[in-house]
Design a protein around this nucleic acid. Structure first.
Lengths: 136, 136
DNA sequence: GATTTTGTAACTGATTCTGTTACAGGATCG
DNA sequence: CGATCCTGTAACAGAATCAGTTACAAAATC
């Protein structure tokens, strides 16, 4: 339902974490994800803006700025979905109806709680957990 | 990010709950949501298949099968997103790479926990809570 | 029998998503 | 210094999804 950005971003970070000494090119990573290198560079750009990795033009590879145990999946989620709400609310309910007038506030409250619960759970899981599961 | 089906479905149920004696037509409900009546009938159909409302061809209106306090937002979520996963996982990671080979299982585990946390929170909120917020 | 309504299929335009091409500019190495 | 490799980013394309719409058969009502 939600797009695969979080999925690919975690894949990228897993590769970086598992080859800490190598400088993995976007082409190499794309080979593991099986997609186009530009897809990797786009996501790496989001991770960089969020401060999760460093990378620079011309220099191969990206480097984690923190240990995997300090990178939560919420950090990654926030990096690739910056500022987006989980649930959409329909735009223009009818203000001449009490339900229509108040439904957006009400849904905001409900949805905010659900989204927060999901984020709390993502915050409990880290890239170190991912690595453990991958290499167990 | 997620589409507005849950949002509109809760709007529909709120109207039904707040006019328990009237037979609200899809056109009336569409007037409050400000959309097309077919959009309402489509969602009402999903709610009917899930057993949350009854309705039948020719007869105006839909009727809740349970009291609002017994209808959780998870019931509504399941009705309109039957069987869909919250997060997408990229299709064909490279099996010749240990990360690629195991990433789908790993992500499944992570995402399942996050999705379940979100659903647990939706299950804690009911249509009665919605009504209270709407009419407080 | 005329009218109203639901249920559902089919289509449309807008948007989003993933993949792709293209290229400017930084880094590296002979 | 020039060739090569790489990143970052813009721009575009096809596929998929979404919300809205038209159309109509069949059921209910008056």
């Amino acid at each position: 339902m939600i797009n695969s950005r979080l999925s690919v971003a975690i894949h990228i970070l897993s590769l970086l974490a598992s080859h800490p000494r190598d400088r993995l090119t976007s082409e190499y990573i794309a080979g593991s994800v099986q997609t186009n290198p530009v897809v990797i560079r786009r996501l790496t750009g989001m991770l960089r803006k969020a401060g999760i990795v460093t990378s620079s033009p011309g220099t191969a590879g990206a480097v984690l700025t923190k240990a995997p145990v300090e990178i939560t999946l919420l950090d990654v989620y926030d990096a690739v979905f910056a500022g987006e709400d989980l649930f959409s609310i329909h735009n223009t309910p009818n203000p001449d109806c009490q339900v229509g007038r108040n439904i957006q506030d009400t849904l905001d409250t409900h949805f905010e709680r659900a989204e927060q619960a999901m984020k709390d759970e993502l915050a409990r899981q880290t890239l170190a957990d991912t690595m453990e599961h991958l290499f167990a």
